[in-house]
């Protein structure tokens, strides 16, 4: 065409529309975001700063001031020396108790819930809808209602006060939401894949392990994060269903922070709190991307 030679002689607006970097809209947007970020980060800042100060410095009362003399003594004390009752081995005992509770609870609940969800999504058995409704209904019953009956059940089973009793409680209480999560995810996978696998001769377990599970990494990560944070942060079940020797970290943290004898060691309390919150935090940072992907996949397409 003859016009091509003229192509560089534009007059008037052309090309991408220029964007102003400082506009009223951007100032509002970033201003608000910065204010909220400070609002939420301030407590964390105070905690970290306080945990690195010695007691004399804390008594001065300048909670926002950075430490003059940085000391890690409060962290050491919180981890291995702080006393709860008769034990003076710090939070470390609670940490290992929590790990011992966490690993089997997360593993067992995810294994069972994924199979539940798979069966509900792909093998429509008789009464599947009723089963699912009852299961979901369980998610809406307040925990407090069930505390005492569970105490009795665990006592009768001889599991009361042991770590395994608590593992069982966590597994059961995680079941409704995890099953829903897995069911929705498996429903969102193309049904034709399932049909193709059946024509190819795979049975219930064959389809599950060879087709479904390899496609479901995101949702397994989501389930893992939900369970790890939920179980790690649990206080109520931990304090009710275990003995002092096997208290999880959260219960022990409470006992350290709320102990009334002696001086209040704010720096040790702050360090202990950060230590307790560290596990869920690390999990989020490591698998944040997969978490978002899995949640989106399960929620939108379900």
């Amino acid at each position: 065409m003859a016009d091509t030679d003229m192509a560089t002689d534009f007059t008037g607006d052309h090309g991408p529309k220029p964007k102003k970097s400082i506009s009223g809209r951007n100032i509002m947007l970033y201003g608000t975001l910065i204010v909220f970020a400070i609002y939420y980060l301030l407590p964390l800042y105070v905690m970290v700063v306080t945990s690195l100060k010695g007691m004399p410095e804390i008594r001065l009362g300048n909670i926002f001031a950075p430490p003059v003399e940085i000391t890690f003594q409060p962290w050491v004390k919180a981890w291995s020396e702080a006393c709860t009752g008769l034990n003076c081995d710090g939070l470390s005992r609670g940490f290992f108790n929590s790990v011992k509770i966490l690993i089997p609870s997360v593993a067992i609940s995810i294994v069972i819930a994924s199979i539940n969800g798979y069966a509900l999504a792909n093998w429509r058995f008789k009464g599947a809808d009723v089963f699912f409704t009852i299961l979901i209904f369980g998610a809406f019953i307040p925990y407090q209602v069930m505390i005492y009956p569970i105490v009795i059940i665990l006592r009768e089973m001889g599991l009361y006060g042991s770590i395994w009793g608590l593992v069982m409680v966590h597994t059961i209480f995680g079941m409704p939401i995890l099953t829903l999560l897995f069911r929705n995810y498996f429903t969102s996978l193309p049904q034709e894949l399932f049909k193709a696998a059946r024509v190819d001769g795979a049975g219930f377990w064959g389809v599950f392990f060879k087709i479904m599970v390899p496609m479901s990494l995101p949702i397994f990560v989501v389930a893992m994060i939900l369970q790890v944070t939920g179980i790690w942060n649990d206080f109520l079940f931990g304090v009710i269903y275990t003995k002092p020797a096997s208290y999880p970290m959260t219960v022990q943290l409470n006992n350290i922070v709320n102990s009334v004898q002696g001086v209040k060691e704010y720096n040790v309390n702050m360090a202990a709190t950060i230590l307790t919150g560290l596990v869920p935090l690390v999990i989020y940072f490591v698998s944040g991307k997969l978490f978002v992907r899995g949640i989106a996949a399960g929620a939108v397409k379900g």
């Binding site: 034709e192 193709a196 024509v199 496609m215």
Partner: peptide, 30 residues
């Protein structure tokens, strides 16, 4: 009878290939 025992092969609209397997894996699965 179960689908696998009927002596049939089936092709689907959405292809329904197993995404985590190679072509060879897809062909050999059955």
């Amino acid at each position: 009878a179960e689908p696998k025992d009927r002596g049939i092969g089936m092709v689907f609209q959405s292809y329904a290939l197993y995404p985590q397997m190679t072509v060879r894996g897809n062909l050999s699965f059955g």
